[in-house]
Write a protein that binds this DNA or RNA. Structure first.
Length: 158
DNA sequence: GGCGGAAGAT
DNA sequence: ATCTTCCGCC
């Protein structure tokens, strides 16, 4: 059976890419679950638009989130409220989704958290080359590499 | 189930 | 700022 999944760059899944030493952020936690095979019955990428995912077991996702944040009273009602805040923030014009489905906007949500990319207030990214000097060419090369790993890939499996 | 205002926590 | 909690409304 063929299905597709969304490839986000590896670094996006890593805990270290969560900004600073702050607490785990919701988008990052969701991405973590999405990445792991063992949670595919709980949450999974959805076919459709890029970044779309379905929560198959709302209670379980809420339980895991609550455990991670040490909030034993967490439930899907509260989790979904947080998700609504999160996704509204990245795309206020987002349509009301289907049941249990949400959509990440990778560029707006995850890209600003790329650990090596600095974003100026004007939105222009920059990366320092190894000699500690700014190079637009280097910046563009790294950005392109990051974007290339963002693609939909077909593969076989169960 | 899903939405979003309002207030509270960190 | 990023949720958490609570809740009325559809």
């Amino acid at each position: 059976k063929k299905f597709h999944c969304y490839h986000f760059p590896e670094w996006a899944y890593k805990t270290e890419s969560s900004p600073g030493s702050r607490q785990i952020q919701l988008w990052h936690f969701i991405l973590e679950l999405l990445q792991k095979e063992e949670f595919r019955h709980v949450i999974a990428w959805q076919q459709g638009e890029y970044g779309e995912f379905v929560i198959k077991d709302p209670d379980e996702v809420a339980r895991l989130w609550g455990r991670r944040k040490c909030k034993p009273q967490m439930n899907y009602d509260k989790l979904s409220r947080a998700l609504r805040y999160l996704l509204q923030q990245e795309d206020p014009a987002q349509d009301q989704g289907q049941r249990f489905t949400y959509k990440f906007n990778f560029n707006k949500l995850v890209m600003p958290n790329y650990p090596f990319i600095n974003i100026r207030p004007n939105g222009i990214p920059w990366i320092l080359a190894k000699n500690n000097e700014f190079s637009m060419e280097y910046t563009v090369r790294i950005m392109r590499k990051a974007y290339e790993s963002i693609k939909i890939e077909n593969f076989s499996g169960s």
